[in-house]
Amino acid sequence: MRPIATTRSASGMPTGLLAVWWVVASEIVIFGGLLASYLMYRLSHDSWSEQAANTNTAIGATNTFVLLTSSFLAVSAHAAAEKGDGKKAARYLWYTIGGAATFVAIKSYEWYTEISHGFTITSNTFWSFYYTAAGIHALHVIAGAFIMAIVAREAAKGLELHRVELIGIYWHFVDIVWIFLFPLLYIAK
């Protein structure tokens, strides 16, 4: 049973939507603090470019493509949910989860290769940042996929369709973080 409080919207925004934006705000500063620290170190350690040269741009670009595509699928789910088509929305959400799985699979392969070449999290502070930033991001991808599965199951029954938009907003934010991680970790060499 939902309290009456949840159904009110004095700010002019549905409660869930408002809360998701606050989640995004709190995430901006978590990634912001991490990436600001990384930037400061990176700019003052020229020698890191030798380390950065070992990252695999092709894999990074592929993963960017995967995430952009999954974002497009998530927004398509939102469009379907707006029309009240829960089944279609759920289907698109499952495609998005597929995107997340592909992303994590590619990431695992990439890390496996790098670690087996000796580039571990302790070998250099560049790699420490590389694994920490991408790792926290990957955790967000995995968490988002789980939440999306819950939303998709409900949406397939035509329930809680507004949640499709909410998980979408979170998902696009995770996408945006990667949009910045990609040049920071893979392109600047």
Binding site: I28, V29, I30, F31, G32, L34, S37, I121, T132
Partner: peptide
């Protein structure tokens, strides 16, 4: 909410420094 983010990132970094030797 707006100030704690960098420290959460920092806490993860410090935790890695403590436990896995970054």
């Amino acid at each position: 909410m707006v100030s704690v983010g960098p420290l959460i990132a920092g806490a993860i970094m410090l935790f890695f420094d403590q436990t896995i030797g970054t």
